[in-house]
């Protein structure tokens, strides 16, 4: 399938990265994506923990509200949410958000829901007899949470939230839809700029972007599976 000409074309296409600052620019673009993902992840971890604890309270109304929020965030594609924040908020409420701000807002709201569900699952996975044996040795509720529930919950959460990071980075690729100058946008600029000199360079640019995403996400996936394996052995 790959003729000699095609191979020639590919090698020529990659030469675009040795021109000017093209490669550096692409990396900087990726950093924009990662920044948005990182801020969203940190906020999601914080709010998600609170949300997850809220989901385990006894009050029925609070639980119902949480459930509806979670379902809504799960049903709506993130891109739809992103459009609603970027275009909708501006019009309806007169709040003008930059693409970056809209992205962080949406990804945080989504991440909070997902993280919250993970936290809820982890909290509820601590078996009842753990609480019983905590009480049996005379611990207070606070001490039971601090010394028995929290460590077991965290242990469970670490690999799961690593996976959430991977998902968040993948989702962040959507920000190109709301006009953020990130890795794909810069890639397109490079392709445009070299249309005459290296007409086939899109293959190289998109391949590099593909593998950039892959490596960043893969590192987190790998960490998650290593931690999981180690936890299983211990």
């Amino acid at each position: 399938m790959l003729s000699l000409e095609a191979i020639d074309a590919i090698s020529k296409a990659f030469s675009v990265f040795f021109m000017g600052k093209n490669f550096i620019r692409l990396v900087m673009g990726l950093l924009v994506t990662i920044q948005i993902a990182a801020v969203s992840v940190l906020l999601s971890l914080f709010f998600g923990t609170l949300f997850g604890m809220l989901m385990t309270v006894q009050n029925r109304f609070i639980r119902a509200f949480c459930k509806i929020y979670l379902e809504f965030m799960r049903i709506m594609p993130q891109l739809v949410l992103l459009f609603m924040a970027y275009y909708g908020l501006t019009r309806t409420l007169g709040i003008s958000l930059s693409g970056e701000a809209a992205s962080v807002l949406v990804f945080t709201m989504w991440g909070t829901a997902e993280m919250g569900d993970l936290v809820r699952g982890a909290l509820q996975s601590v078996p009842a007899h753990q609480y019983d044996s905590g009480m049996a040795i005379g611990l207070t509720d606070k001490q039971i949470f601090r010394y028995i529930v929290l460590p077991q919950t965290l242990r469970r959460l670490v690999p799961l939230s690593m996976n959430l990071v991977t998902r968040m980075i993948k989702t962040t690729s959507l920000v190109v839809f709301v006009g953020v100058i990130e890795v794909v946008k810069i890639g397109q600029q490079i392709i445009e700029g070299n249309r005459l000199t290296v007409p086939t360079c899109s293959i190289a640019v998109y391949a590099v972007i593909f593998f950039m995403y892959f490596f960043v996400c893969w590192i987190f996936s790998l960490m998650a599976s290593v931690i999981e394996k180690r936890q299983k052995e211990a």
Partner: peptide
């Protein structure tokens, strides 16, 4: 597949592959 976004996969399929014919 698990570590790349669909969007980037589509970009590659739609905009890059034509260069390979």
């Amino acid at each position: 597949s698990r570590n790349t976004p669909l969007l980037i996969q589509l970009f590659f399929l739609y905009f890059a592959l034509p260069n390979l014919g």
